[in-house]
Amino acid sequence: MIFLILLKAFLITLWVVFIGLLFLGIGRKITARIQKRYGPPFYQQFIDVIKLLAKESIWHHWIMILGAIMALGGLIATALHVPIAGILPYDSNGPIFLVLYLSAIGYLGMAMGVSASGNPNAPLGIGRALTLMLGYEIPFAAVLIIFMGLTKSSYFLQIAQSQAGGILHWNFIRYPLAFIGAEIAVQAMMAEKPFDQMIAPAEIASGPLVEWPGKFLGLGMIQMGVSVFIETAIITNLFLGPSHNILDFTLKQFGIYFIALCINAVMPRFKIENAAIYLWTIPLGLGLLQMLITFVL
């Protein structure tokens, strides 16, 4: 019994990492094409991860290692609780609160790891990331609570199954305001523009990952892939109907990621406090408006 659960968990983990890295690779290619570059091949991300993992790395303290392990481990555990076309390692049905609070352990691990690296630019990035997190979690929670209230359950699986019966029953058509709000929140969650100040991909000397060399960065890249997977999977479960098979599910996930990429490619950047305030006004406002329309009117 427990062996079966672990075997399933292992296979799902492989799939999650594979799809996450594939998305990141395709994403690089698409961004390049939007900017009229040729871009790296779509499998470049796999090459990068393998190269980084094979590199000899420096570390400052075991807390740094603990942080890196917690970061990736926490996110993988989260991914194993998000239903992928209804598939889960055990019959958890995708408990929403667990997913929200388990993903936090991944972010905490990363924050701890970079703090233990002793570079002051790293916690600066974390401080921004957490401020942004306070920004996007609230509208996202509002959207989640709408669907929890509608289905009287706190499970992703139930929300996905409640949309059965053709595209007109899918939540993004029935609850468009919530969908837009959640999309903006997910844009911030993935740290894509206009919310990318915290990860600061263009500025090498700041941002959380400044002091993560070699295999730490490799783990960080896998973690990024897993987090993209989780975020797109959550939106897919919430808005894009029940999926019949994994391929269907993955295509929907890619659709969500594609939207995020296109916005990312053409947007400038928010200052972090302005980003938080923007997230508390527009997406939260949309979410609350949807809540009002759904439950009161």
Binding site: L53, A54, K55, A68, G73
Partner: peptide, 19 residues
């Protein structure tokens, strides 16, 4: 399970040294 998996991954790949 996830924590053990990542720990194994971390320690089987390349070496690390302290600074």
């Amino acid at each position: 399970f996830a924590a053990v998996l990542v720990t194994i991954l971390f320690f089987v790949v390349a070496k690390h040294h302290k600074k």
